[in-house]
Amino acid sequence: MIEMKHVSFAYKDHQPSVRDLSFRLEKGEFAAILGANGAGKTTTVRLLDGLLKPTSGQVLIDDADAATSQVSERARKVGFLFQNPDRQICRNSVREEILFGLRTVCGGEGEEALQARTEEVLKEFSFTGEEEPFSLSRGQRQLVALASILAVEPEILILDEPTTGLDYRECCHIMNRIRRMNEEKQVTVIMVCHDMEVVLDYAHRALIMAGGQLLADGPVPGIFRDAELLEKASVLPPQMIGLGMRLGDGFENACTPEAMAEAVMARRKKRSVPHE
């Protein structure tokens, strides 16, 4: 459970970046934060993890005020993927990188268990473990950063643009992995994402931000049907929903290609009845 209560935040000597934000995520929820560049998404997730202290208001993690404990103490519970993977990577090989994260937070479980877990994660992400992180491509570095966070198996996952810079296959791969953690282990996921197709496919709930404020908070895909709201937040709806909304007239509810095809077929049947 993670909750924000009337949180406002301003960077030093700046206008507020986040204003009076309130929402609550229950255990096992999968939520996405959407909004234009500079809307305050990164600021919001940093507040959630306690990396920033709210200027006013409260952040609660499992009903405890986040301000009463240190961020590093919560690392076991809360995993945080940064927008820029290079800030996080600090070891010379992918294996070391994953082990490093494990050792800092799960040191008590014994070196052998950690080694085994590392090998598992390496295999899952198709790394040999010997790669030098800094000579990998940006997308691959993103995968390294994500792998080292997932290895820890946190209860809450905060992801700042996890799929940016990944190709379609890798994107599906890691999102499926995240979904599995969400479904099997009831991990709470909150991700910032600019790719509405990913949001539509994976998230159950969307928080839409604009100018540091929460414009809307609702279920996916329903929230994508509010054209006026999306316009205000400069968010383009996923393609199928956009198409359905433009067609109107019964097509609005189709949000996958399959559903759209079905709706078209149903329509044809209905139309062809008088001719027969």
Partner: peptide
Amino acid sequence: AEIMEAQTARGVAFDK
């Protein structure tokens, strides 16, 4: 500063 923040989030006790 960002690197230290990222490591704190991973459990390195910079904040203590």
